[in-house]
Design a protein around this nucleic acid. Structure first.
Length: 439
DNA sequence: TCTGGGGTCCTAGGACCC
DNA sequence: TCTGGGGTCCTAGGACCC
């Protein structure tokens, strides 16, 4: 198993693209009054800037001339894609953990798995990454499991390369602080320290029953196994998303319900757009709120049918906010959808709910009547339920598979104008189903 | 000018069902 | 005529990760 972790990734991309930033402290993250640091370059870390620190604190620590940047995620995404493609040249089993981190199952790539073999392979990979990205470096760890690969990549940052030879796992693992294990955060670390556990070796001396009592059933059993370097977690290349959400911390706490409701509409719009882009819908709408005193709560409601309709998501979230109240002011609101499935049921149904529940027109812009901006293009494609079809592939329509012998085509206007829904029978000529699958 | 934003997984209680 | 027992779904919160 190989683990790759790109070094100070966002800051490294900025330094690559802006030569004037090279060799200087760079901090990427929120630059507003309530921002936090996403990535600090190694030069900025020398002054004590760290990820997750408030940007205000980082400004105090870093000298004049430090660059504080808001971040250019499209550039980071492009660079990440280049790196992930290099990893996929090594093996079909690549699991991106985040934009700057991935596991690679080298065994599935048919490589020489000797220590010398994988060391050479990693050297070549690092060189290709630096070349293809214009100088972004990564730290590589290789071992007999995800655990050991990740521990290895962490051992020699930045620009590191550590191979943990099979058989030496416990030797490497046991002297390390427990906090190096994934899943041991501040809360678990504090509890472990209370019972005298500081290193992974200390952890390995605890009984399974002790750890389950301390950390719960699943977590306790997980710690027990990791302390023994027992880890058979597989590389999973394509994880399906389980939820989609958007949240926002305001520059100043907000109290006005009208203002907050407009924020909800905007966030529901973004969530709905992302659901549609990935051709999924969800049944559970969750409102997250953080009050003036940083207390955080969630309120959720599960609908009878999955939806991707921003209006229904917003109406549900608004109701949850009205029930929760805004007393004292809110510093954050978030809107999320979970319980995802691959088909969109019932935008007609959603219309019914919106129309049937009180003040619909008060919530709706005056020009809400759906606009058909374009007829569907003459199709040369076969569509069937469940098929993943991208917007640009067929112009103005969206296709949703329902698996019930019909296909819903949604005609989309500009981003702000949801279109009507037309349900087509399986034999509708629009679909040109030459060879209908067995629905 | 304390404390982001996007996620995942787990736990626990109550409702409900057979 | 003391108190069953699983299973699933829903909701809320917490811990954790990058």
């Amino acid at each position: 198993m190989l683990h790759l972790d790109l070094d100070a990734f966002f800051a490294a991309v900025e330094q690559r693209d802006k030569p004037s930033l090279r060799g200087r402290p760079v901090v990427v993250g929120g630059v507003g009054g309530r921002g936090v640091v996403a990535t600090a370059s190694y030069e900025a870390r020398a002054y004590g800037a760290r990820s997750a620190m408030s940007t205000a604190e980082a400004r105090k620590r870093c000298p004049p001339g430090t660059a504080f940047l808001g971040g250019r995620f499209a550039a980071y995404r492009r660079t990440s894609d280049v790196v992930m493609a290099l990893l996929r040249d090594l093996s079909p089993l690549v699991e991106p953990v985040s934009i700057d981190e991935a596991y690679v199952d080298l065994a599935a790539g048919g490589h020489d798995l000797s220590v010398d073999g994988v060391t050479e392979l990693a050297r070549g990979l690092k060189a290709r990454i630096a070349e293809a990205t214009g100088g972004v470096t990564g730290s590589v760890g290789i071992g007999s499991s995800k655990l050991m690969a990740k521990i290895g990549s962490d051992l020699q940052k930045p620009d590191g390369l550590v191979v943990v030879p099979p058989g030496s796992e416990l030797e490497v693992l046991h002297p390390l602080p427990v906090t190096r294990l994934g899943g041991v955060g501040p809360a678990t670390a504090a509890r472990l320290h209370q019972v005298g556990v500081k290193t992974v070796g200390d952890l390995a001396a605890k009984s399974l029953a002790d750890l389950v009592a301390l950390a719960g059933k699943a977590h306790g059993a997980g710690l027990y196994a990791l302390a023994r370097a027992e880890d058979d977690r597989a590389v999973v290349p394509d994880r399906e998303a389980k939820s989609v959400s958007h949240e926002e911390t305001f520059e100043r706490d907000l109290t006005d319900l009208d203002v907050l409701n407009r924020e909800i509409d905007s966030m529901a719009g973004r969530v709905g757009e992302r659901l549609r882009r990935t051709a999924v819908s969800g049944r559970t709408v969750t409102l997250k709120l953080r009050r003036y005193d940083f207390t955080t709560m969630t309120r959720s409601q599960t609908l009878a049918q999955p939806t991707d309709d921003p209006r229904l998501i917003a109406a549900t979230a608004r109701r949850l906010l009205a029930e929760a109240g805004t007393q004292g002011g809110l510093r954050l609101l978030g809107v999320g959808v979970s319980g995802l499935s691959v088909f969109a049921q019932g935008d007609l149904f959603a219309e019914d709910i919106l129309a049937g529940e009180g003040e619909p027109s008060a919530d709706e812009p005056a020009d809400a009547e759906p606009a058909v901006l374009a007829e569907p293009p003459p199709t040369e494609r076969l569509w069937w339920p469940g098929q993943d079809v991208r917007h640009e592939e067929f112009g103005a329509g969206w296709v949703w598979g329902r698996g019930l012998g019909r296909v819903t085509v949604r005609f989309e206007g500009p981003r702000t104008a949801p279109g009507p829904v037309r349900t087509l029978a399986a034999d509708d000529p629009l679909l040109q189903l030459a060879d209908p699958p067995d629905w």
